[in-house]
C-alpha cells in the first residue's frame, strides 16, 4: 500500500502532508505537522491525552486513521489561544491550579472546549461526564472540574458584552 497525500483543515488552515499507510491522526499532527500539544499517553484510546476536536467533536487521535478524516476540520490546543491570549478555559485552568505535570492538560482542555461549545452552562455532573475518558495521574480531578465550571462562568459573563460590541 503506498503512502498518500492527506489534506486536513487544522486550526483553520489547510495542511497537506504525506501519510504512510496506517498513520494515525496523532502521529500526523505530531510528526508531519509539528503540532505536539496532543500527547501519546497510551496509544490505545484509554487515557485521553491525545484528544483533539474533529468537526467539533472530541476524538482520541491515537485511534483515528488519518485518511478517514481527510478534508475535515481538526482543532488542537495550539489553535485555542488566539493571538497568544489565553481563552476562558485556559485561564481558568491556570487560576484554579488544574495543571500539575501538564501531560493530560491538552486533552482535558479540548474536551472542555467541546463541552462548553455544546452547553455553555454545564452542571458539575456534565463536566465529570465530559472528562470521564481523560486520565489525570497527578492533580486529581477536583481542580479540573472546578476550572471547567469556572471557565463556563467566565465565558457566560463575557458573552453579552461581546455580543453588544458585535452589534
Amino acid at each position: 500500500m503506498p503512502s498518500q497525500i492527506v489534506s486536513l483543515v487544522v486550526n483553520g488552515e489547510r495542511r497537506e502532508f504525506i501519510a504512510v499507510p496506517g498513520a494515525t491522526l496523532l502521529a500526523s499532527l505530531r510528526e508531519s505537522l509539528g503540532l505536539t500539544a496532543a500527547k501519546r499517553g497510551c496509544a490505545q484510546g484509554a487515557c485521553g491525552t491525545c484528544t483533539v476536536l474533529v468537526d467539533g467533536r472530541p476524538e482520541v487521535a491515537c485511534l483515528v486513521a488519518v485518511e478517514t478524516v481527510a478534508g475535515r476540520e481538526v482543532r488542537t490546543l495550539e489553535g485555542v489561544a488566539a493571538g497568544g491570549e489565553l481563552d476562558e478555559v485556559q485561564s481558568a485552568f491556570v487560576d484554579c491550579f488544574a495543571t500539575q505535570c501538564g501531560f493530560c492538560t491538552a486533552g482535558m482542555i479540548m474536551v472542555a472546549e467541546a463541552l462548553l461549545e455544546r452547553d455553555p452552562d454545564p452542571s458539575e455532573e456534565d463536566v465529570v461526564e465530559a472528562i470521564s475518558g481523560n486520565v489525570c495521574r497527578c492533580t486529581g480531578y477536583r481542580p479540573i472540574v472546578i476550572a471547567i465550571l469556572e471557565a463556563a462562568r467566565r465565558r457566560r459573563a463575557k458573552s453579552p458584552q461581546e455580543e453588544a460590541v458585535a452589534r
Binding site: 505530531r30 510528526e31 509539528g34 505536539t36 500539544a37 496532543a38 500527547k39 501519546r40 488542537t76 490546543l77 495550539e78 485555542v80 489561544a81 489565553l86 478555559v89 485556559q90 485561564s91 485552568f93 491556570v94 487560576d95 491550579f97 495543571t99 501538564g102 501531560f103 492538560t105 491538552a106 482542555i109
Partner: peptide, 21 residues
C-alpha cells in the same frame, strides 16, 4: 502563587522529551 509552568501546559508549549524531533 501561580505555577511557573502552568502557561506552558495550557497552551501546549511545554516541551516534553518526546516533543523533540
Amino acid at each position: 502563587v501561580q505555577r511557573s509552568d502552568a502557561r506552558g501546559h495550557v497552551t501546549g508549549r511545554t516541551e516534553f522529551f518526546e516533543d523533540v524531533a
